[in-house]
Write a protein that binds this DNA or RNA. Sequence first.
DNA 1: GTTGCCTGCCC
DNA 2: ATTCTGC
DNA 3: GCAGAATGGGCAGGCAAC
Length: 939
Amino acid sequence: MQVALTFDTPGVIAVVMTGCHVLKSTPRVPLRLNFTAASELRACQQLLPRLTRNVMSKRNLASPSTPSRKKSKGSSDQHSLHRYFDASAKRESTASPSKSKAKQKAHTIPTAAGVQLQNDHIDITADDALYAWKLAEKDGLDLDTLRKLENANSRGAQVPRPATVEVIDVDLEDEITPAAATSTTEIAGPSTPTLRPATRSIPGSPSVSPQAAQTYSALHVHPAHYDLESGTWPTGSPAPYSFLAHTLATVSGTRSRITILNTLTNALRTITMHHPPSLLPALYLLSNSLSPPYSPIELGLGPSIVSKAIQNISGLTSAALKRLYTSTGDAGDVAFEAKSNVRTLIPHPPLLIIGVYGSLLKIAHAKGQGATKQKQSIVEQLLVAAKGEEIRFLVRTLSQNLRVGAVRTSILTALARAMVLTPPPGLSVPIPSDSPFCVSPEIMLRAKATTTNAKKKHGDRPEDTLNEFFDKAEGLVKKVYVQHPNYDHIATALLEAGLDGLAVRLPLTVGIPLLPTLGSPTRSLDEIYSRLELLPFSAEFKYDGQRAQIHASRDDNSQVYVKLFSRHLEDMTDKYPDVVALVTDMCKSRAGSFIIDAEIVAIDPNSGSLKSFQDLANRARKDVKLDDVKISVCVYAFDIMYLDEQILLERPFRERRALLRSRFPPVIPEQKGAARFDHVQSCESEEGREAIEEFWQTAVNSSCEGLMIKLLDNGEVLEDSEKGKSRRKPLPATYEPDKRTSAWLKLKKDYVTGLGDSLDLVPIGAWHGNGRKAQWWSPVLLAVWESETGKLVGVCKCMSGFSDVFYKNMKERYPENSETCSRQPLWSPAVETGGLRPEVYFKPQEVWEIRGADITMSPVSVAALGLVSQTRGLSLRFPRFIKIREDKGLEQASTPEFLANMYRIQQATGKDRTGADDGDLVDVDLEDAERMDSEASTG
DNA sequence: GTTGCCTGCCC
DNA sequence: ATTCTGC
DNA sequence: GCAGAATGGGCAGGCAAC
């Protein structure tokens, strides 16, 4: 049990027994207390006054009376907890006094509540477990691996039982059945958990050092100097989560790539060495994911629940937490600070990497009524169990924002290096004698010697030898991952067969998406010609739709199997039954299998003309039946990566495209509204620059985003080296998964000066930034100027395009609580913000040039309300700051009419979507827009 | 049964 | 998606 | 030039609150 002492309201000391899991905000929910000995309770109660004094003298977090603020509506700062603390502050302040009295009373009679344990306990029944397995199976997870994990989990978790208090341990839940839950009321025998801090308290004694935790050896050292044996945990035991927290803390403490990679490498080596089954969950936790991207497992939990959980386990008021949040800009830091006020009487058994991962899975699998409560409950149990640094990273993980300076690439690099240095114990396939990844002891010794000496001799750099091994391994692991992005399969393969067995085991596979090639942004045709010089290229329409990777294969029974993946590899097969039907038909006329890259675009079912991205976004996503499809689409194919057992990634684009064109002719099904198949419209550089420029104009006028320029053949381009010399550098025209290569250049109309929608807007408010922008205003709320009334009306938020220097200056021009920046609007007659409610208001005094790609009909903005729609305002897609318009005053800022007109022009252009030049600019008047509105809502 | 908060995922 | 920053 | 972080508008879907 843990006891938190907090100052809930001035003059009142609330006592929260967090270890017993008091659900502070929901008094109706029974307290989860389960005292096994009355003396234990008495001991605790006797301690309370003393602990109260300790905390009071140490730190005063008493909050002033909570001002009741309006709950923000519709403003969704994705990674921000501000609004939720705000929202809770309101709820708290409006809560009836009797309620809070009842709350405190309840805390003092835990025995009564203890009886109700069963009501609030999350039952993990055998059926649930079975269901989870079925889900996992359906999701394509590797069941064996998961099962192994679960077993390892149970085995490890049994060791660190609390001595005298029954705690529902998140690590144990997997094995808790209703029967088990009731039987554990017996007092377990004393045990010596493997990771019990040295300062472990005798049960009931006044330990007030909850942060005492295992100390691990430094991880940031060069791997050659890292000692795998000391300062860890016993070999064979599951890796503790505190080790991962230590790793993350080390990584987040530096910006040096070298240090980050050293740290991750050493951490993964340690885990591999001491407990291989912990490797996979460690990889998932490091990468802040739960499953392969194409599996539908999601946490389904965000800042809202996390903030409530932090409140509950810390007992701090939302106002106090909000202050913490404003100063740190990180939910994890808030939780860390908040929990530093929680006094732990009896240490909780250590969290394990496997256990934490398991809890996350459990959160993800909570579905249906009561799911939110279940999720929150699991979160709170995790937070209660977390010690020291653990809570910081636990909360960041739960907020889906780990932010330690290492994501996928670093993790893969580190994994590769770890496998070079520390091949997994117990490989079922021995390392071949000629393994290219086997580092000899001599090389290790030399690497060690070289990295010790600061001075390196030129010409004789033996550490390069080790680096060569690293390079080879990194290349392999990254290549395998981008073609087969599944940590589960990778970890399993590595643990069984090492680096040597990886590539064979995990080939490019139909049914498993590969990471797509990406385009580099360019600002003009000039830039494109200077980057590609005279190399032949193809210019393709860049349609405003959704990227789709289409997988199809046919088995021996002529059963066709089709999968569609999004740009981020989500499985969206269910969203496009019409495309599945189309592809199935295409398959029937041919044998074999293929993977095609394409853009799905909404079209008019009659004319086939292109429709907007927003039209496409209106499609349903889940369990869509063929008959339910209301928005017709065309699949515009532009690449092929796999055809009839042939991997085409290494072939030049010209060749791939020829295959695509010859083997997959366009399809327009008889049935109206059925999905169509076509090739992207394109133009060759051989046709000359004038033709390309004309093609570009056509693309822009056809409501495409612009052009994709693709190198046709492998070539070489000039590269500026540092010394002013130029070298020839190869530029391959191969399919490069996950690369933003120069061989694919995107030219969007909104990149080109003068073509994008540029507005002159007034900054009228802002929010506190997060993370590295915690000390600045970000994002900023921007407004149009309503000239007749003098009102300012919010259009959109903006956070992109500001340099750090600009942020600093902005903060100086708008210091918090000043004449230019206040919690209250600083303008008369009024600022209207609609659903965009900033944390602070600026004094309107500047005009900024803001660029965007499109004007959108907005559900939250009230700018230009009534001009094109009675119910919706206008906003801006992809807004970014260009510069301050020093030459403009407020009166010269863009008006709602200007914005509305821009929207009308855009819509008119949209009616000419085939590229045919009928130039019939239709003025979208009010009635027109309203009709479209109602059609959209009823249709 | 309806509304609205919250999340995930498209761009 | 867009953009900026440190390595 | 890469890798990472901090965030934009806006949709559907799922759940909770009314």
